[in-house]
Design a protein around this nucleic acid. Structure first.
Length: 788
RNA sequence: GCUGGGGUGGCGGAAUAGGUAUACGCGACGGACUUAAAAUCCGUUGAAGCAAUUCAUGCGGGUUCGAUUCCCGCCCUCAGCACCA
């Protein structure tokens, strides 16, 4: 082999080691430079290893990190591990292997592969959520929330598989059948811990306006929070002292109520059901209560009459009270007023059960509040004009705001998570621990993780038995652990001061480095992780720990990479592309650039190993240029290079990485036509290519005699305006259709171009055949001749 | 159903303050080099037609000298949410 061939593998190992030794990616937290914090959603270190999908986001963030460093920023670009979680525990159940060890092995493997991909990470800031120095602060967060009344325990239903003896998520129990063993899922009411995120509903909604996120994610969060303004109306019951309160966003339709509906879970059902109807009501509730919402069919509105009647406060009419499962206990008051004339679901219900339909307004489909009333008292008035007086007329009505957002369930009956820092004492009851008692360590004496129906931590005598911090008497520990979303709701803070043992981070550092300037990750976290993190940040702001209210200023979402067969990458289809595999064949630089070249960053893309060859060819050609360097720069080449710098700068700022790659290609195509390149232009080119291809650019830069890393050089400046060539091509249209081209001096006038057209035999012949009506001319762009 | 994407050659995709549609890459075809292959290099490559030319950006209309881009009405597809009163 010719020794001057591009041997990417040896270049990779060489520079990876040198960079590591010289710590060129270390962040100086006290730097005077302007800060820039770039973060990836940290990975779960699974045993499967890194696939190309992971790398897409990491490469983009790395490009930005390198680019910002070259532009003179102090960049924080860390990496860590979302190490707690179910897959590791399930692996432990299957193999009996210690989760501590499994996690450690997986992290080692992940880290190795990430380092090979030339991600410019400051590894001194690595975090691992299963490390006791990390989860100590996860537990502290719990304590702070608890002390503010934002962490509480209540009985709540869960999906329970009696055969697996384990709790199932909604996805695992689709249609009420256990995903794994196919037995029927039961609903159990058990004690669960919640964080009161609903207290922050309004702040979470408002804050959305202050961040630079994709519209789709913002909309998803808005919808999830689900704010609606309305009125609560109390209804008296005939022959009863009970009061039924309903929530409505359209109080004016009170004139059209022909029935009320209770949720099957409503506590008022017993007292409202008459003896005649008791049997049917009990049968109905028994039939639907074990089902979860998923199983209820929305087009069939089942229901049953209670036998009781409510009194409409506006006109004293009697209204039958029904029970139906389309009404949810969790939202509003668990009671709905049935207005079949103006609500689709109520209409279906009324049709099935033969209930009256009464119209109160003429609906404006495009804008409801513009609808006109038809009830005599307000005839022809618009809803927006009469709503207030109607509300005032309804006795004891109250304006309220409802949210769909529900409190966040954070407890899990699992082993591999952060223990909840609470103990139970015979004398003092539920007692929260203090900071000095932390961390509550996971026990190491559990060897059997197989679920038996009790939380795994209860198997450890050593863990469970403790003393009450209040009375020093015997106490038992809480045996549940926290959801991994709690770990990830604050991890972005920890990178700023990862070794601090006294607090989440030094206030001075947190104030300087928060928030995250650019956050990159998958849109699957739109309403989970991203909402929880915003909640925790707002809470810590209220606690005085942070001085910012939003954690992630700019968010970029990564489009999924599908397999070569256009299916989702999965073990099941055998179409997973491992990073290590393609890197060995094509080199890390090629893989990075190819992934960026595949298409728009936020759109999904299909993997195609064959296409990688195009990038490898490009890198080979760049490599070959080193033998064609001359000292003098030609002027046209300067213009070309300046234009490239401007374009690449713009495209990186806009996140259009695929276009960067085609610009590099076009540039090299042009340079090759001339078969030589000036040294300083080549150096500029290498610098602006270095964020995409860190290895080859470093090697070539070094061979040019530079004694410092290209990644510590400076981003070249460019002229603001695009540099143009002396001559330009003007397309000539006749009636909007392209009929020819004229090559002329830049900035030529209409008259000059028309003269040239006359000299062009083909064009001239065409014009002479038509009667010219007008001419549209846009300088340096186009000339269109329009005939009458 | 609602919300947000997307629909452009054989394939991945360029081009939107309206201005040469198909940049760039892959693949394919032809050629050079080679005993041969790989690699590399040089051509050609939206469709139809000998050609002038005509037709092509999911479909149907509209505005305009000119529409992938703007407006109206649909279809397909991906993702998320889904009885929220």
């Amino acid at each position: 082999m010719n020794k001057d061939n591009y041997d990417f593998l040896s270049i990779q190992t060489k520079w990876r080691d040198i960079w590591e030794k010289n710590k060129i990616y270390k962040t100086n937290i006290l730097s005077e430079k302007e800060k820039y914090y770039i973060l990836d959603m940290y990975p779960y270190p699974s045993g499967v290893g890194l696939h190309v999908g992971h790398i897409k986001g990491y490469t983009a963030s790395d490009i930005n990190a390198r680019y910002k460093r070259l532009k003179g920023f102090e960049v924080l670009h860390p990496m860590g591990w979302d190490a707690f979680g179910l897959p590791t525990e399930n692996f432990a159940i299957k193999t009996g292997k210690d989760p501590y060890l499994v996690t450690k092995e997986n992290i080692t493997e992940f880290k190795k592969e990430i380092s090979n991909m030339a991600l410019s990470i400051d590894w001194e800031r690595e975090i691992d959520t299963s490390n006791k120095y990390y989860y100590k602060f996860t537990q502290l967060l719990f304590i702070k929330l608890y002390n503010k009344g934002l962490a509480y325990k209540k009985k709540s239903p869960i999906n329970w598989c009696p055969s697996c003896k384990t709790v199932l998520s909604n996805e695992q129990s689709m249609n009420g059948i256990c995903e794994r063993c196919e037995s029927k899922v039961e609903i159990k009411n058990i004690d669960q811990w919640f964080f009161k995120i609903t207290d922050y509903a309004e702040k979470l909604l408002e804050g959305i306006n202050n961040v630079d996120w994709p519209v789709s994610i913002k909309k998803m969060q808005e919808k999830w929070i689900g704010k609606s303004e309305g009125v609560e109306i109390p209804f008296a019951i005939k022959d009863s002292k009970e009061i039924l309160t309903v929530f409505t966003t359209k109080p004016e339709t009170i004139y059209g109520i022909t029935f009320l509906v209770l949720a099957p879970e409503s506590p008022l059902i017993e007292s409202l059901t008459t003896t005649d109807n008791k049997e049917l009501v009990e049968k109905y509730i028994k039939n639907i209560s074990p089902q979860k919402e998923v199983e209820r069919k929305k087009d069939v509105k089942t229901g049953v009459f209670t036998g009781s009647y409510a009194i409409n406060p506006i006109n004293n009419e009697l209204i039958p009270i029904w029970i139906a499962d389309y009404v949810l206990m969790e939202y509003g008051t668990g009671t709905v007023m049935g207005v079949p004339a103006h609500d689709k679901r109520d209409l279906l219900f009324a049709q099935i059960h033969n209930l009256k339909i009464e119209f109160v307004l003429e609906e404006d489909k495009n804008n409801y509040i513009e609808s006109r009333m038809i009830v005599s008292k307000y005839k022809n008035k618009k809803v927006k004009e009469v709503r207030d007086s109607i509300i005032n007329e309804i006795k004891d009505s109250k304006r309220v705001i409802n949210y769909k957002l529900r409190d966040w369930t954070i407890s899990r009956e699992r082993f591999w998570g952060a223990p909840i820092p609470v103990v139970y004492c015979d004398k003092c009851g539920e007692v929260i621990l203090e900071e000095k008692d932390l961390p509550v360590l996971l026990p190491q004496d559990i060897t059997d993780y197989v679920p038996t129906g009790i939380p795994p931590l209860e198997k450890s005598e050593k863990f469970m038995h403790t003393t009450c911090p209040k009375c020093k008497g015997p106490a038992l520990r809480e045996s549940k652990t926290m959801d991994t979303f709690v770990d990830s709701s604050w991890y972005y803070l920890r990178f700023i001061d990862p070794l601090n043992e006294d607090s989440i981070g030094k206030k001075e550092y947190l104030d300087k480095w928060m928030n995250v300037d650019l956050y990159i990750g998958g849109s699957e976290h739109a309403v989970g992780h991203l909402l929880y993190s915003r909640f925790i940040t707002k809470f810590l702001f209220d606690e005085g720990i942070l001085d910012i209210e939003e954690p992630f200023q700019k968010l970029k979402t990564v489009g999924l990479i599908y397999g070569e067969d256009h299916r989702k990458m999965s073990k099941r289809w055998g179409n997973v592309v491992k990073v290590s595999f393609v890197t060995e064949e094509y080199g890390a630089d090629s893989v990075r650039m190819y992934i960026m070249f595949m298409g728009p960053f936020d759109q999904y893309a299909y993997w195609n190993t064959k296409s990688l060859i195009g990038i490898k060819r490009l890198l080979n050609r760049i490599w070959d240029l080193q033998s064609k360097i001359i000292t003098k720069n030609a002027n046209t080449e300067n213009v070309l290079t300046d234009n490239l710098v401007r374009k690449i700068t713009d495209y990186i700022d806009k996140g259009k990485y695929n276009l960067c790659v085609s610009e590099y290609m076009k540039y090299i195509n042009e340079i090759e036509k001339k078969n030589c390149i000036g040294k300083s232009n080549f150096e500029k080119f290498l610098i602006i290519l270095s964020p995409f291809a860190p290895y080859i650019t470093e090697e070539l830069w070094n061979r040019l005699g530079n004694d410092f890393s290209i990644h510590q050089s400076k981003w070249p400046s460019s002229k603001k305006e695009e540099q143009h060539q002396k001559y330009i091509n003007i397309p000539i249209q006749i009636n909007g259709k392209l009929r020819g081209n004229i090559i002329t001096l830049y900035d030529s006038s209409e008259k000059e171009i028309l003269e040239l057209i006359e000299k062009d035999t083909k064009l001239n012949q065409r014009i002479s055949n038509i009667e010219i009506d007008k001419i549209i001319f846009i300088k340096n762009k186009i000339l269109n001749i329009v005939s009458a």
